[in-house]
Design a protein around this nucleic acid. Structure first.
Lengths: 381, 381
DNA sequence: CCGAGTTATGAATCCCACA
DNA sequence: ATGTGGGATTCATAACTCG
């Protein structure tokens, strides 16, 4: 198919009764059955993005009355937790069989399914190395204001067994991360824009296409060039596209012909990176965003403290939850809103409007924010 | 102990055979037994930081450090996990019994135990609302360089059942977060420095003392002042200290006398915040209902007045009974229904959709409602 | 061509008081 | 318990429109 460092080695020297690996192919079929057809102990990494079993109720609308396009596909419907567990157990066992003794497994999921998956992994003897958080830079908001914005997904990284000598490219990751260790929380945007595959009607081809950057981080962390990556829920083929670009081999299993075909076309168009390009590029850092409540929580401002504007005309009291209340009224809200209310303005930057008196001097609360940012330093991203 | 909004109410009016709540006390004893001794349906929130390295009858090893022969490996793990699951199931059931029907539960854990806890919670009927990531600003590095820096812990927030009407202080959290929704990833530093309790020898008193800021975020999110918070693994008493400061009641259960005693001393020294620093900011949801007809009756809008949408595309006339009629048709109904009809939408918030022109300016009728609410508020005093 | 304004959308377990 | 209807609710990003 395309030049690889070691694809042939993976198939050479096998006995006549052991099937060949379908390297760099999209296999149409059931995950468990097709994994069972692979030679045991033959893949270096499994990346699995199984159905999440979302259990959605009715339809959900945005405040502007537009309808949220829910994941209501048949493949995400399970009768019960018991049925989901049986499904999970079956594919985990098949994946474990396909893994080399020193291979590792990544699974991604949400709170709907990840706890069940993780517990079953432990039951089956997988050895968890890390849980990893994909922090979404641009998650969908919670439209009804009834929960925290669901702004992350969870990955579990596990070795086939506790004593495995697994691959972890520690030095490369650290070098690409401004020379500090790669943490267990990763920040990436959703897969949108040009990267998102569209069908003939211009609609998204697959409801849950993952960003290539996320898969790239995984392959760069836990595989070497030429390694074999198995994805039993191939979908739109992101794993294959990234594997080809990073000069890894892949095996994709996908049940739906439409997805499999789209994935083949997608992967064919990929040009593998040059050998020397396969070093992790340094990641850029962002200015940390700090909320006023963080200042209160951290004790840089104490609840009950008084805020004033620069000239001392308006006064407000800091509350424990990070809101403030305007003196002489019952107006309570954010530093920005209350600042706007005080002035009768439509908007206000509370960070520069409000001041605190500390150590005999009055200074804007923005100074405290700067101090907190400095304290948080590297970790804030 | 200290002034609370409602501690007495929680114990009043109970039948003679129902035990009193040990409010604002540290109970020395076993979590499951002491929770079973509480009256059922009596607490608003449970915060649990369960151990994951229990030595149950010598059977259970630390999940992350057990080094056993490969031969016994799987069996031993199974035994260990089974014991841990039994322990988890027992305390989750006891906590569920102690919770009010609309109460919620927070559990914190790491990849060693959180998957088992989460799966069991689902099995027992808890309804997961969010999983929340505590991102550590200053995590301990991975010294061996064999894994990602373990830079977070996971919290699970769950209601007692799927149909519960749980407390979530959405508006306050948003206002304290620069007016954007609070996300599921929270950044806090570890508990260090002055906050960290020390024993007589100057060593840390408790191995897993949580930062007060983390607990404060939880209580401010999911409880009201005066609510009862139960912590079955009280340890150094962080939950009690934060509850007292935020004027919530607490019940702490701790097995080890040394921790219980240290917690009591710690909590006694806490001074509750002022009421002003804690009163909930007004939320639109909880604002007193004002009917549009009340505006007409009070003369803030006169019958016959014309309403338009923001851009003047739709017009309606106000009727004496508080209904409106769409111009150019015979549609009559509430401001909401007619607004929906005008746009061909399923629903519409008439308060923000319809505008009136008064004193030469066009503003939403919600402004008039706010004015009436203010008048009523003054009249009520 | 550029900038401002508008529209579209993403793995979502998303209301609640009252009759 | 079930149905009805008032009315509360969104953030980041990309694409598109228009002047």
């Amino acid at each position: 198919m395309y030049s690889q460092t070691a694809p042939l080695a993976a198939n050479s020297g096998r006995p006549a009764d052991v099937p060949a690996l379908p390297l760099n192919q999209v296999v149409l079929g059931d995950s468990v059955r097709e994994m069972a057809a692979l030679p045991p102990g033959s893949v270096d990494l499994v990346f699995a993005d199984p159905p999440y079993n979302l259990q959605l109720g009715g339809e959900l609308k945005r405040p502007d009355e537009s309808r949220v396009d829910a994941v209501d596909d048949a493949w995400d419907q399970f009768e019960s937790f018991q049925a989901y567990d049986a499904f999970t157990r079956a594919w985990l066992l098949a994946a474990r069989r396909a893994l080399k003794p020193n291979g590792t497994l990544f699974v991604i999921g949400s709170y709907h399914n990840i706890f069940r998956v993780g517990a079953l992994m432990q039951d089956l003897g997988f050895w968890i190395l890390n849980d990893i958080i994909w922090r979404k830079a641009n998650p969908m908001p919670n439209f009804r204001g009834r929960r925290f914005t669901n702004a992350h997904e969870t990955l579990i990284w596990a070795a086939r067994s506790a004593d495995a000598k697994y691959t972890f490219n520690y030095e490369a990751l650290k070098a690409g991360n401004d020379d500090v260790q790669m943490r267990s929380d990763w920040l990436f945007p959703l897969c949108t824009g040009q990267e998102r595959l569209k069908d003939a009607g211009g609609r998204k081809l697959h409801p849950t296409q993952k960003p290539e950057a996320l898969i790239a981080r995984i392959l760069l962390s836990a595989t070497k060039p030429g390694d074999v990556v198995l994805d039993p829920f191939f979908g739109s083929g992101t794993t294959g596209a990234v594997a080809k670009r990073l000069r890894r081999s892949f095996i994709g299993i996908e049940r739906e012909e439409a997805y499999a075909e789209a994935a083949r076309t997608r992967i064919d168009a990929i040009e593998p990176l040059s050998e020397e390009a396969l070093v992790a590029p340094p990641s850029a850092r962002e200015a940390p965003r700090v909320a006023f409540s963080a200042l209160v929580e951290r004790g840089l401002v104490t609840p009950g403290a008084e805020l004033t504007d620069a000239k001392g005309r308006f006064r407000a009291v800091v509350r424990a939850d990070g809101t403030i209340s305007l003196s002489g009224g019952q107006n309570v809200g954010s530093i920005h809103r209350v600042g706007a209310l005080a002035q009768g303005a439509e908007a206000c930057n509370g960070w520069t409007f409000w001041h605190v008196e500390q150590e005999g001097r009055r200074h804007p609360i923005d100074v405290l924010r700067a101090r907190l940012r400095a304290e948080m330093g590297i970790a804030a991203e």
